[in-house]
Amino acid sequence: MTRSGKKNHRQQRGTAARRRGIWAETLAVAYLRLKGYRVIERNWRSKLGEIDILARRGNLLALIEVKTRADTGLAGGALLQPQRQRLLRALSHYLKTRPELAGLDLRCDVLALGRFGWPVHLVDAWRPDF
């Protein structure tokens, strides 16, 4: 295989992964709305990181990281400490841009999606430490 063939294969894998990610986040948003959450941000990006979903229910603001794997058990464990720290830095920056949300209770969740079955919502997967 030529170098350009490898590059095209990598680009195709990246495109497929992006499509799976968009599908997973769309499913996650629908699921959260059914549970009574109001999604206020989706794919919020800053120089400090990206937040998949920010959703509000009552006095609660939930940062929700969407993870997809072949098995939801694997998806739930896919969020490592450096990723958590990056998400919290992004959340802190987000809250500085939206002072009206600063007084809400914060929670960090993971919404795990496997190949089959319902999404698994890991509520309070970790605590923000700020």
Rank of each mutant, 00 (worst) to 15 (best):
G5P: 07
N59C: 06
G58V: 13
T97S: 01
L95W: 03
Q85V: 13
K7F: 15
L113W: 03
V120G: 05
R3H: 10
E50T: 12
K35E: 03
A28D: 13
A112V: 04
P128N: 07
R3A: 06
A70C: 03
R13I: 15
R127Q: 09
I64H: 09
Q12P: 08
L80D: 01
I53P: 13
Y31K: 08
L61F: 14
R33E: 08
P119E: 05
L80R: 15
H121Q: 01
T26K: 01
A125W: 10
G76M: 04
A78L: 06
E100R: 10
E65P: 14
F130T: 04
T72Q: 04
V120A: 01
G5E: 15
R89H: 01
R84D: 00
R127D: 02
R19G: 08
L48Y: 03
L122Q: 10
A112L: 07
K47V: 13
R20K: 03
H121S: 05
G14K: 04
G21C: 01
L54A: 03
V123N: 07
D52W: 06
W44I: 12
G76Y: 03
V39D: 11
A24C: 07
N8M: 01
A70K: 01
V120Q: 07
R38L: 03
T72Y: 07
T68G: 10
V29S: 14
R20Y: 07
S4Y: 05
L111G: 14
I51H: 05
